[in-house]
Write a protein that binds this DNA or RNA. Structure first.
Lengths: 343, 343
DNA sequence: AAGTGTAATGTTAGCGCTAACGCACTGGCA
DNA sequence: TGCCAGTGCGTTAGCGCTAACATTACACTT
């Protein structure tokens, strides 16, 4: 009944290719899997048949027998932020180039339960590996507890719980920023940090402090923010009155923007009265008024390396690898030598 | 040999559940698929066995026989921009809530070849439907040519080539912006547009023009940009000299930012000397100096509705549906009545 | 001449699931 | 009483692929 010859409806399967090429379906499989035991002539004929029929291997059938899905799960939080989004982009690209599918799951809440739910989603899909874009301590802990059977790489957290990780050196970035300020002659350098609960936020505080102490300066000007421009703006309003620092290292560009607005509104001139340096180098920061001096993070490189590590582990390399990539100082217009010495 | 009783290695399969519950594997399947012909008692026992063993259905096997992968492909370009990223987030959430996996593919280049490649990727994965986050005319054309066998929904383009689409009403948004300026008393209203090659860019030009003509004003102050702050900055430098407009509608917030910097550097005061209004309402725009009046796009709603339409089509609803969601004016500090009348 | 290895292919079984069918058992109705 | 239509299950046959084994042909040894 349904033996109506051509594949008007049903896409061609291996057997169809085999028939056209005059071989068995297994030989077609061998050609597809680059098995060496196929004569050049046969390989040629099979490849022609594949091209002629427009054959594409059924990945569900393949997954069923190989127990590999050829897909990598990416667990992301804050996906609409510049950093995570850029990393995701790079991860997707590298994974697809390596022949993998990329499945995403946005984290609903940064809790163990939220992570467990997302991981279960990936398990249902039988992903071959997971890249995690949630640099938060609870992530590594939750992941460890779940005892995953597949390799996991965390972007932004290295050496956590024996899990593999690739991270931008946040301490170095903070030191670069602070040292730049010190070289300009600043001695009263404050830090408006990100939340300490996030690894990046905590590490930047450490770097800021290290650079200060190494130069014999005091680390007493620390305020905590929450990555948002809104909170930074509020803090900026207070800082405008206090004027205890001649330079401020903001935990990210958004907070620097909030500071910029607060100072602009209160008549505190940047950089003449106070220098500001951000972190991330998101595309807009070059067009703030004035253009923001900041620390550039290599998000693309970060994403690429996450996949490199993951693929290595998929090919049997040992787990628990750590890699670090370096941020870079970008000097623009918000940092100059201190004009007056207010103490 | 490998009959070592428990599932120390191999995860449980349907047969294992069946054995524990004392039924056939088919009955387990029936319970899982909510087949009504299962007695309450049996259903209960099966569900207990499932819980006890921690059984999870193998999706590859299921896909193989049902020819459905339970996954939705999302084709995205500019994934690191705020709008697309937010939409992606909403799409992912809605899809996962509906029990689907979400696979992404970033578009390498906005050309027919690039789209064809990404679509092939999705076909290999046998996705059940595709959401496209590339509001570019070439997208719909390429998609149409490919004669996809699965439903497709384009975010940001409605009524194109008979394909389904959900879009924010860009014309309305532009009109809202321009009418706001007109109400304030402006008569010389320029537009720094996005690329006309993008649907959004073109539609905003149309809306700007419509509002102007409806009020009896001239539509002669049009400049083309490319969404970037960099180009907008260059244009802004020229505009600062020309001073032909008392208000400028920027095609997006980033371009508004570029303008802001150019005017700031050249001593043109915003909003006293010139009013500026943006488009998108990206989170930072509230903290520009001064805070930007702009048009807010409901990206989350957009993403949600894309999945709604897609699911409807997956359930047999007709294809080629169009839905429109509305943007909203957000008045902040960059727009005031014209202070002097320069012509 | 018989034996041995190996390259190139074919044949068979089965991955875990659903669809289709089969078969008891019930209850309602003529 | 007999018939029929459900209900609640079990049994069987694949989905399209790869892994494992079987088979052939031929070169090369002893």
């Amino acid at each position: 009944m349904r033996e109506t010859g051509q594949s008007a409806v049903r896409p061609p399967v291996m057997e169809d290719v085999a028939k056209v090429a005059g071989v068995s379906h297994q030989t077609v499989s061998r050609v597809l899997n680059n098995n060496p035991n196929v004569s050049p002539g046969t390989r040629e004929r099979v490849e022609q048949a594949i091209a002629q029929l427009g054959y594409r291997r059924n990945s569900a059938a393949r997954s069923l027998v190989t127990r590999q899905s050829q897909t990598i799960g990416v667990l992301a939080a804050e996906m609409s932020e510049y950093g995570p989004a850029s990393t995701l982009l790079a991860v997707e690209r590298a994974a697809r180039d390596a022949g993998y599918f990329v499945s995403i799951a946005g984290l609903r809440e940064v809790t163990k339960a939220g992570i467990a739910e997302a991981v279960r989603h990936f398990q249902d899909q039988a992903v071959d590996g997971i890249v995690v874009l949630v640099p938060h301590p609870v992530t590594s802990a939750a992941l460890k507890e779940l005892k995953l059977q597949v390799p996991v790489v965390i972007a932004g957290a290295v050496g956590e719980q024996g899990l593999s990780g690739v991270a931008v050196d946040q301490q170095l970035g903070a030191q670069l920023a602070v040292e730049h300020l010190i070289e300009l002659g600043h001695t009263r350098i404050g830090h408006l940090s990100g939340p300490q609960a996030w690894i990046d936020g905590a590490q930047r505080i450490v770097g800021w402090r290290k650079a200060l102490l190494a130069a014999g300066l005091k680390d007493d000007l620390l305020r905590h923010g929450d990555w948002t421009a809104a909170t930074a703006y509020e803090v900026g309003l207070e800082l405008a009155t206090a004027r205890s620092a001649t330079a401020i290292f903001a935990g990210n560009d958004q907070m620097a923007l909030g500071l910029l607005r607060a100072f602009h509104e209160t008549g505190v001139r940047v950089p003449e009265d106070i220098s500001i340096i951000g972190f991330d180098d998101q595309p807009d920061s070059e067009y703030y008024s004035p253009p923001l001096t900041t620390v550039s993070q290599p998000f693309t490189e970060l994403g690429k390396q996450c996949i490199e590590v993951l693929l290595d582990e998929l090919n049997g390399a040992e787990h628990g690898v750590s890699r670090v990539v370096e941020p870079r100082l970008v000097v623009r217009k918000t940092t100059v030598p201190p004009q007056s010495t207010i103490n």
